[in-house]
Write a protein that binds this DNA or RNA. Structure first.
Lengths: 123, 123
DNA sequence: CCTTATCTACTACATTTGTAGAAATTAAAA
DNA sequence: TTTTAATTTCTACAAATGTAGTAGATAAGG
């Protein structure tokens, strides 16, 4: 399943607070970005058409939506293309990039170290 | 600078073998994907318009191109959006995902471990 | 020098994406 | 029950994207 950037922004919100209505999604998106309610609703409709979202009931006249794909499924799909296009397919340099650029606390670091250790063991 | 997927595919090739002509790019892309020469040339033209690529001479009647943005600049720009959209902005889970999903040899693992150690030290 | 194969430049078009208004509907309020 | 305010549906449209054809230019070969 291929979703656009805006569609993913909506999915992101939905994953965090589902089930919810288009109005609620609009509410939260508005905090970051000036956007009309109908624009958000259009995106939700497209997500429904693509089968990423489904109706989970009503609340007054408003439709309650819920996701029907999960984040990990989509990130699994997107990951190879991203790695190829921005890091020439070199997973090591991608991981290195993130380790160096991103904020990580001691606990995060310890966790990632343990993952690497496991990875090594598994060989 | 915002480039499309196909544009990035061409950039990727260019970074690996620049400077080169549109015909050479087409040659390599053809190995993976059925695509007309003029399609590739159109993408190169658009990249030139966007200022991602420039002319670096001629070879017969063919134009030789060279990139004028580098991979790290573009990946730095793309990274936050990708992390947000596919991992809810959680860099730790993104890195974890890649460590677990991707193929890494012992040397890669050692390298990444040293980066984490540095990261910890720097605190 | 003329022909030709190749390359560029220009144009075209369907689809997707971001964006939102207008019209129709309906739950809720009065 | 009638009005109203919020929602859904439908429609629209510009820009970006993937895709490629056509026409014109030109280097290279004969």
């Amino acid at each position: 399943m291929k979703l656009s950037e805006f569609e993913l922004d909506v999915m992101q919100l939905l994953w965090q607070r589902e089930p919810c209505t288009a109005a609620q999604l609009h509410e939260h998106l508005s905090q970051t970005k000036k956007v009309a309610y109908t624009t958000v609703k259009t995106i939700v409709d497209r997500l429904e058409q693509k089968g990423a979202v489904e109706r989970a009931g009503q609340q007054g006249k408003a439709i309650i939506y819920r996701s029907c794909v999960d984040q990990s499924t989509l990130s699994d799909q997107a990951t190879p293309g991203f790695m190829q296009r921005f890091f020439g397919g070199d997973s090591r340099s991608l991981i290195a990039h993130f380790i160096q650029q991103e904020e990580l606390n001691e606990e995060d670091i310890a966790y990632l170290q343990s993952l690497l250790k496991d990875k090594k063991q598994a060989k």
